[in-house]
Nucleic acid binder design. Structure first.
Length: 393
RNA sequence: GUGGGUAUAGCGUAGCUGGUUAACGCGUCAGUUUGUGGCACUGAAGACCGAGAGUUCGAAUCUCUCUACCCACC
């Protein structure tokens, strides 16, 4: 049997609001794996690895990552959550000892649309790896996440696609609420078991409702009544709707989210999206954009977005971002990185991912400093637009 | 020296029983990427078809000459 290393006595789910500027919040979220300074960007390592060859050690030592995000569905398919349980949980498995948030697999209901069937009890998938049939419902998702022993588990939801009919969105939301109730029941049971690696595992509920104000608000009201949730997420955004619609939905839902719990905008987004969402009261973010874009040679700088493979950098001796002090920018020129991309060297992706993650993590640091010093509004005015424009120099 | 073969974008090839703006891959250039199945996807530029002559309404395509390269035999 597995030796329990985490006490079940302490209450770790503490969100402390340090400062507020308008709707924007500067906070601190205490977890069993350490305290998270918010607003925070979680670095996406779907299969217990940041794509591009960044290890947990790099993340912790150099890249200022506070929280790593892993995916329930992917890890269930491979290597199997039972394997990770036997290996002592995700933290031990990947040698990452700060907080981990596991996504529930709900998003894969949406993104693997061609390979699934949704029913009341849960979702039938065909595995993207070997095609075998997989069933996942709220209980399965909670059991898997309990085996993974993440710090924060996400509720199993349906991410409604955009556009969607009002009637379908409504039925889907109601089902997602019922699923959340089942998640809570199952997680309570799992956290009480002697064999559970992390009995302090927390659950975040997820708000849905497509782009319909009434559904969003109604759903938020329903799920916030479920007191067990340690935080709440807004899901189903940045899936094709215009940016101003996304901001509008956040503005509509935010007043109904508990002020004493963290708010997490799932899957978002660009640096500008993040600044705008912090401005509207969001505390947690995650997005594949910094890592995926980096692998495709798009890097973020303080003065805008650059395509590192462009010819104009052929003889450029400057680092990607002259104002950045990440390991990549401290050591390598644009000319060299462009060459690595053109030559299809793995190192190109690694250096660029390293830079982009550092950029996102330090962007959040700068947002927190601005909030600490009461000048977030000014920060937003300076950077919100600039960071999402193409770099010209 | 004789016989045979090949010459089409930067590279490798398709088209060659003659018929509209010569196709494809790689490379080049540019762009996309929002709770990551797929290190992926989209687009653009670029050759007047080895050179010259001929047949024909019309030639990358047929004929002749030349040049270069490859193979075989002397």
């Amino acid at each position: 049997m597995f030796m329990r290393t985490i006490s079940r006595r302490n209450n770790y789910h503490m969100f402390r609001l340090i400062k507020q500027e308008g709707a924007a919040r500067r906070g601190e979220f205490t977890t069993v794996h350490g305290t998270i300074q918010t607003p925070v960007f979680m670095n996406v390592g779907t299969s217990a690895a940041i794509k591009g060859g960044i290890s947990s050690i790099d993340l912790a030592d150099e890249l200022k990552c506070q929280v790593e995000l892993c995916n329930t569905y992917h890890l269930h398919v491979r290597p199997g959550d039972d394997i990770i349980y036997k290996m002592g949980g995700l933290h031990k498995f990947m040698n990452w000892h700060r907080p981990i948030l596991t996504d529930s697999g709900g998003f894969q209901v949406f993104s693997l649309a061609k390979l699934r069937r949704i029913k009341e009890e849960g979702v039938y998938f065909n595995s993207h790896v070997d095609g075998r049939k997989i069933f996942m419902g709220p209980e399965e998702s909670m059991r898997i996440q309990s085996n993974l022993a993440s710090t924060i588990a996400m509720a199993f939801d349906e991410c409604v696609e955009n556009p969607a009919e009002h009637s379908y969105s409504k039925r889907s939301c109601e089902r997602t609420t019922r699923w959340l109730e089942r998640c809570v029941t199952e997680m309570k049971r799992l956290n009480s078991l002697e064999t559970t690696i992390n009995p302090q595992q927390m659950l975040f509920g997820i708000n849905q409702g497509c782009t319909y104000d009434d559904l969003r608000v109604e759903h938020m009201k329903r799920i916030r009544e479920i007191d067990y949730c340690a935080g709440f997420a807004i899901g189903g955004l940045a899936v094709g709707e215009p940016t101003d619609v996304m901001y509008h939905v956040i503005e509509k839902v935010e007043p109904y989210m508990p002020a004493d719990k963290p708010r997490y905008l799932m899957g978002v987004g660009t640096p500008s999206n993040i600044i705008e969402a912090v401005y509207r009261g969001v505390d947690f973010f995650d997005c594949v954009m910094p890592s995926r874009n980096a692998r495709h040679a798009t890097v973020f700088t303080r003065n805008g977005i650059m395509h590192a493979h462009n010819k104009q950098y052929e003889l450029d001796e400057r680092p990607l971002d002259p104002e950045c002090d990440c390991p990549t920018c401290r050591n390598f020129s644009r000319a060299y990185i462009r060459h690595l991309f053109k030559s299809n060297e793995q190192l190109a992706g690694r250096l660029a991912v390293q830079h982009n993650l550092y950029f996102y993590n330090t962007l959040m640091e700068r947002i927190r400093e601005a909030l600490d010093e009461g000048r977030f509004e000014q920060f937003r005015n300076t950077y919100s637009e600039r960071l999402s424009k193409k770099l010209i120099d």
